[in-house]
Write a protein that binds this DNA or RNA. Structure first.
Lengths: 371, 371
DNA sequence: CGACTTAGTCCACACTGTTGCTTTACTAGG
DNA sequence: CCTAGTAAAGCAACAGTGTGGACTAAGTCG
């Protein structure tokens, strides 16, 4: 997969990604940013405009010549559905090209009280409901986020935590067959890191029932050899600490939950800060986004204390530029991130390249396309 | 940078990479592996053969038709020099296309006893000596590995540990000017992970004076926002542990060194195993390569105990496939990895794409090319 | 108003990988 | 030995990519 079509798609995605990142940008700046010639940008922009994805948006004051024409996304040109499936129900969001949540539904139900097939029927019905008013050809696809472990490449669930009976369910194929739309599946934390565009090296840290992380490294999602990267909570921070459900002692997750159980959010934040500082140094990250019930209960405290620990642990001024923030999407982060799985294919943030170094391997398609 | 030239280079590198990985491979298999058509492979192979990089190597028994022609690298077609610069001197290796060390020199000297300029002159002379007999146009370049921190993108050293006076030295440019060859610079641990081809998600863990890691994730080197990823040793494993030089308590590095100081290699291995298990789960790695003086002092012990800890900590059978080995390159790993920095550009393992998600950003060149 | 500057496009072009067909080189069967 | 069948590899024409040079559009400035 590295022919002329791939080249075009790659460049097109890069241009779209730049436009999204800049909100408004001129052709000249696009040429500069991508390294392509003005002529190539001109062609690509024409194609995108013909597809309705972008449109001119005013002009920049001239600097002694013809003024630059600003371009921007047409948010309503395409739509994407993001689904979070968790132990207590589902959350759906309808998202436009600009990444704005246009519609949302949260349903509480007990997935273990029904067969997976029934639950899939329910999810499919929910998706249909949310896109009912839209021209179907403008719906790019559906992203689904689940607790792991799962196989992102094949779209099959494994022993999903708290959902017995789902082991081996080919969720992606099942849903694609029901909907007739492209479906993407990934871990909830991995989806979370795609909830908003961000730095090329960043982490999404989710402290809820469990503790997990999603990683974007070198501008691409890190999924790992078995697409289950992000096990952040079970690192041993204190071998004499309390026993964790995973069998070890003093896992970061166990320590944080113990602190939260004591009502001591400050301690939980400090502990989490230690783990995040380790993470930042290991991977040289520029940005950390926090989320999860526990964090959302007191966002400022977590942001400030974790930021403080990170600054303390990374004294070198060169490292000071680590942005620690709490997600602005609240409880919809993961569903929004699931939508991001689909949008990423358009904007070039997902690693459509697959596992191969050179991006040329024969690859399992990242999405299930209906036949 | 994503034009036809880039496309060709990308495919060429992918084909070369496949040939290296397979040792011997036919055109048909190359087409299958890369997804390119047989015709495209035919053209690329012709070009590579014309450049002398590959040559036919026998045939596969026919299965009822024209037999497949096997292709393989011509190891002597190109050469690469790898340099490790450390606190006590330098190690040089001359490496052929197959990654074999053809010549090697290790020199002990005190870099702090001379000006950086003098040391650079010395290194340049050593490189010249090792390539003296070779046709210069067949020397692809020189890779240099240093302790961090440094800026890989600009090729400038920062406050290198143990080498005062080197802060701000543009090592890459200086050396390229002296040699008239492309020069690549990177952290020693990052170089180490490129010492041999390996899994797309792997780590190189070096336990010597310090403790660091090099990471290849999703088939690309993880360098991070400031190209200083790999700070593996200063994760806090035990907050009540001994004080570390970095100011924190109970860093993995401090604990390991304390164990080694006690003569207790087993404890050091177990501790390191914990850290590595955390790493494997966080990034979902398939392979871990161990190196460093401490490990080489008793390779089997480290391999076996770390392997055992990893298997114990990752009980899910899906995770069992983590290969833990000790490098076969001994004390020359880092220098060999420095050579790998150069070879990677040929075989498509390095991330020539730079930090941008789509690989299209205007980028600082990864190598310094002489003018 | 005219000279100048910058943005953006038209057109011919070089070069990529692809498609359809042919040649090469072997096995199998009479 | 000959013929049919099969698979690998190359040839030639082609579609589509980004590029380079010339040209047009739309401003500023003196």
């Amino acid at each position: 997969m590295a022919n002329l079509t791939a080249l075009r798609d790659h460049n097109t995605a890069a241009v779209l990604g730049r436009i999204r990142a800049a909100d408004e940008i001129s052709r000249v700046e696009l040429a500069l940013a991508t390294g392509l010639t003005a002529q190539a940008i001109s062609k690509i922009v024409q194609r995108l405009a013909a597809e309705g994805l972008i449109a001119p948006a005013g002009r920049v004051p001239s600097a002694g010549g013809k003024p630059r024409t600003l371009l921007r996304l047409v948010p309503q040109a395409r739509w994407v559905v993001g689904v979070q499936l968790h132990r207590h129900g589902s959350t759906l969001v309808l998202v436009d090209l600009a990444g704005r949540i246009v519609d949302a539904t949260a349903t509480r139900f007990d997935p273990s009280g029904a067969t997976p097939q029934q639950t899939l029927d329910l999810i499919a019905a929910q998706v249909e409901a949310v896109i009912a008013e839209l021209p179907r050809e403008r719906v790019l696809g559906v992203g689904v986020a689940c607790p792991g472990p799962l196989d992102q490449r094949t779209g099959v669930l494994h022993q999903v935590t708290g959902l017995p009976g789902w082991n081996g369910i080919p969720l992606r194929a099942e849903l694609a067959a029901r909907l007739g739309l492209p479906v993407f599946l990934d871990k909830d934390t991995t989806a979370g890191v795609l909830s908003r565009p961000g730095a090329p090296d960043r982490a999404f840290v989710y402290l809820g029932d469990g503790l997990g992380a999603g990683l974007v490294l070198g501008g691409r999602v890190q999924r790992g050899a078995r697409t289950n990267a992000g096990e952040f909570g079970h690192q041993v921070i204190d071998p004499r600490g309390p026993r964790c459900a995973c069998g070890n002692h003093g896992c970061l997750e166990a320590l944080c939950r113990a602190a939260l159980a004591d009502g001591d959010r400050g301690r939980a934040a400090d502990l989490l800060g230690e783990g995040i500082a380790n993470l930042v140094r290991l991977l040289d990250l520029a940005q950390v986004v926090l989320a999860g019930d526990a964090v959302l209960a007191d966002p400022d405290l977590f942001r400030d204390r974790i930021g403080a620990v990170v600054r303390e642990r990374l004294p070198d001024p060169g490292w000071q530029q680590v942005g620690v923030t709490v997600t602005d999407a609240g409880e919809q982060v993961v569903a929004l991130g699931a939508a991001g799985l689909v949008l990423g294919t358009l904007f070039g943030e997902s690693d459509a390249d697959g596992p191969d170094a050179a991006g040329l391997a024969v690859q399992a398609p990242a999405a299930q396309y209906p036949e």
